[in-house]
Write a protein that binds this DNA or RNA. Sequence first.
DNA 1: ATGACTCCATTTTGGAGA
Length: 257
Amino acid sequence: MKIATFNINNVVSRLAVLTAWLEAEQPDVVCLQELKADQGAFPLAALEALGYGAVWKGQRTWNGVAILARGMTPVLTRTALPGDPDKAQARYIEAAVNGVLVGGLYLPNGNPAPGPKFDYKLVWFEAFNAHAQTLLDAKVPVVLAGDYNVVPTEADLYPNHSYGDNALLRPESRAAFQRLLDQGWTDGLRAIHPTGPLWTFWSYLRFRWPKDKGLRIDHLLVSPQLTDALVDAGVDRWVRDLDGASDHAPAWITLDR
DNA sequence: ATGACTCCATTTTGGAGA
């Protein structure tokens, strides 16, 4: 069972990129972020033609999250994060697929920091961590996949960077992510690849992709019920090279179940 | 370097992303 997360950065204008990737890699479950599309503008028919069912929470212009499943429609359990301070922002969706509960998230970017956007990021993070703990307490198989907008360690971005105290690197952001891991979640990509670059994002600016100067901010966390089933993980870097690419590439894990 | 890319809406500038 291959589960992926992909910040598509507009699901309508980048439908050809999404289609090319789905056809080539055939992931079983996909969490999408930054749909940037109204609820009614989601390209369900095109995805169904590829064999995917979907549930989604749309929002015009910004945010928006979806969960796709190959050969079935995910069983929707939530379209909002409990305790989200701003209900208008579509940043969390949750659904069951083949006995695995999948949470798809688009954590607030938080820039500029400090400021109200950074405050919102930290409040959202705490609400998310609280919900993650309730999921752990349920002792069911869970994957939390999405754009966390956190670079966990200095090994998770290119050397000699100039990100300074960017909200993605701030100690408060990293500490919140570490508290999440400390609940008992396993970082799927790092568990399979303990060292080395695992970039999932390359800015459009300054030739970051041709220079391979990236960041790792898209993560898949697995609950203890699934750690033994985790057999592979990776980043589909080729998708970042397509014409009209998102600035993110899909990240994925494979579970033996 | 409030630079550069990319897209969109409150459109012909500016906001957001990270």
